[in-house]
Simulated assay, not measured.
Amino acid sequence: MPVAAFAASGEEAALTWFAEHRDDVSIVADDGTNRLSHHAEVPRVLASTIKVVHLLAYTTAVAGGLDPAEPVRVGDWDAFPFRGERLTRLGRLRAWASLSIDCDEFGIARDPERSSRSLDALATAMIAASNNAAPDHLRVGSANR
């Protein structure tokens, strides 16, 4: 399910999804007065944990009216510098491949003017492909809205 669709699906739909995927997720949420916990003791691999913070901010913005279908110019998404880490490059390559965006061997898009990607595709690539440019764009791009 696309990130925005999940975020916008409402509480009942989210709870239904969790119920159907009970063994696949662990949840711990604590607002200081209430605590929600499911499989809290089950270790889960969560790479790039900071991306979850960006994902939460994005889904909150979508719930507040941000259009997840808003187009993103590929060059704007790709504007954040390649830091040279092998995993950063692999995240870029995986993201572009999943979105059918042609790029060079370093993960730099060949057509930066292309703008057929949405904010939701960017958020999905951030998590699914571990794309490190996505949280940078969500943070900086959101500040400019």
Rank of each mutant, 00 (worst) to 15 (best):
1 M>Q: 09
1 M>I: 13
1 M>V: 15
3 V>L: 14
6 F>G: 03
12 E>V: 14
16 T>C: 07
16 T>P: 02
16 T>Y: 09
19 A>D: 12
20 E>G: 11
21 H>D: 05
25 V>C: 08
26 S>G: 15
28 V>Q: 06
29 A>G: 10
32 G>D: 05
39 H>G: 09
42 V>A: 14
43 P>S: 03
44 R>M: 11
44 R>H: 11
44 R>Q: 06
45 V>G: 09
46 L>C: 08
49 T>Q: 08
51 K>G: 00
54 H>R: 10
59 T>C: 07
59 T>M: 13
60 T>Y: 04
60 T>L: 11
61 A>T: 04
63 A>S: 14
66 L>I: 07
66 L>V: 11
73 R>L: 05
74 V>G: 07
75 G>A: 09
75 G>Q: 04
79 A>T: 03
80 F>N: 01
82 F>A: 00
85 E>R: 15
89 R>W: 00
92 R>F: 01
94 R>K: 12
94 R>D: 10
97 A>N: 04
99 L>M: 12
101 I>K: 00
105 E>N: 06
112 P>F: 00
112 P>W: 00
113 E>T: 12
115 S>M: 10
122 L>K: 06
126 M>D: 01
130 S>M: 06
133 A>N: 15
135 P>R: 05
140 V>W: 11
143 A>H: 13
143 A>L: 12
145 R>F: 04
